[in-house]
Design a binder for these strands. Sequence first.
DNA 1: CCCAGCGCTTAACCTATGTTAATTTCCCGA
DNA 2: TCGGGAAATTAACATAGGTTAAGCGCTGGG
Lengths: 242, 242
Amino acid sequence: MDNVLVKKLQGYARLCEEDQRVLNAVVRDVRTVPAHTDLAREGEKSAFVHLVLEGFACRYKFTAEGNRQIMAFLVPGDFCDLHVVVLKQMDHSIGTISPCKVVDIPHEQILALLQRPRLSLAMLCAALVDSAVLREWLVNVGQRGARQRLGHVFCELLLRLRIVGLADNGYELPLSQTDLADTIGTSSVHLNRVLQELRQENLISWKGETLAIHDIDRLMKLSGFNSNYLHIGMQGADESAL
Amino acid sequence: MDNVLVKKLQGYARLCEEDQRVLNAVVRDVRTVPAHTDLAREGEKSAFVHLVLEGFACRYKFTAEGNRQIMAFLVPGDFCDLHVVVLKQMDHSIGTISPCKVVDIPHEQILALLQRPRLSLAMLCAALVDSAVLREWLVNVGQRGARQRLGHVFCELLLRLRIVGLADNGYELPLSQTDLADTIGTSSVHLNRVLQELRQENLISWKGETLAIHDIDRLMKLSGFNSNYLHIGMQGADESAL
DNA sequence: CCCAGCGCTTAACCTATGTTAATTTCCCGA
DNA sequence: TCGGGAAATTAACATAGGTTAAGCGCTGGG
């Protein structure tokens, strides 16, 4: 029974038995964290790298004026803060959105993972894809209208959650509308307006925590979504590299 | 006479003589590239990593509607596309803005650099800072008004260019207003409006290609600029790491 | 030296989105 | 089952920023 981390990393490199065993070994001492709890705070340096196994967390930052921008969703299989291994302090915060199951991984254990070439490659790929996602978010917020932005986020999450087996034509989306608004850089009032539109055009429905996407093709087209940046199905990447 | 790459990487790790020699050796076969020329295109995979030595280049992407978002400025000392060593294809394009001097570095040579622990650490830090910059840009575009956004970009470039010795209280900024508009996600008309305001408030002047910042403190305050995310002066980072 | 073209500037007008605030719905605990 | 608080919804109004278009001023080529 493979954990989400194995599922995800297998998308980037062919992992041998031993690689998988090592990864499964990392996922010990799972901790349950309530919603709206910080895992790491701006300015601090954590002794652990955090890995999400269940639930939604996010990377975020407040501006001087007190506005929050969510800069990434961290879903099952995602490392939250691999960079603390190297950088002196966090330049942003990480917090749960829904209740989460997370693992705190000590630095030495991360370094041990990186000793294994295939794992190292896969983790590097995952980190590069994280950057690619961030770039796409910038395009999204910088160039698209609110409808498109929202649709884009829904599409991206669909594909990302499918990788770890958590989506088919919909998924559990335990966010508040305010969270989504802080993601796409609009007010919550406007987010709601746009959401109503998508619902009325029968593109999606979202009730309780369940999002259903009724017409993914139309939604992708509407939002200008192109999945290239997720680098899905690029298994092996350039295996000769490392 | 150290090149900009050495200058920059020394900010992240204490490089030994040999490290510096190796870096200087990389900077052979400098190529001059005219303005508005692509160094790498979305969808392709380059055989080389590009390093900027002089001039401004950028990371960019067009949306389906034909709008351009600039996602990063690449200034002297910056690697443009380290990730091609690992990923199968570019998910965005890289192009020069002004005429540039660049070096095309073959993959094997990059891998050779990464064999040296200090260099490897420094390059990793640089890559992590690039991500941090990207996150800050997302905050900028998502949460701040156009004045603040523009001021923020000016502040960031000042600090980044100082690292490589290319700025004091101003710097050469060879961009068009359209380039800047595509950076902060506004129309060029609005960019111009905001620019006039900053000029009239005597915060900056920008004539020809020379930007002068008259009151950096006030500009930083106005734009909510906090330099933490650049991780300047964190030399050594966590040297025990790699 | 003059013309063509591009980039900058300005103005007028329009729309997407923000703000405030009132109302309703939902969910959870007593 | 009821009551309270948070989240969602809606409306009315305000504004930042987009669009279009016209005029201006360099700058480089003939």
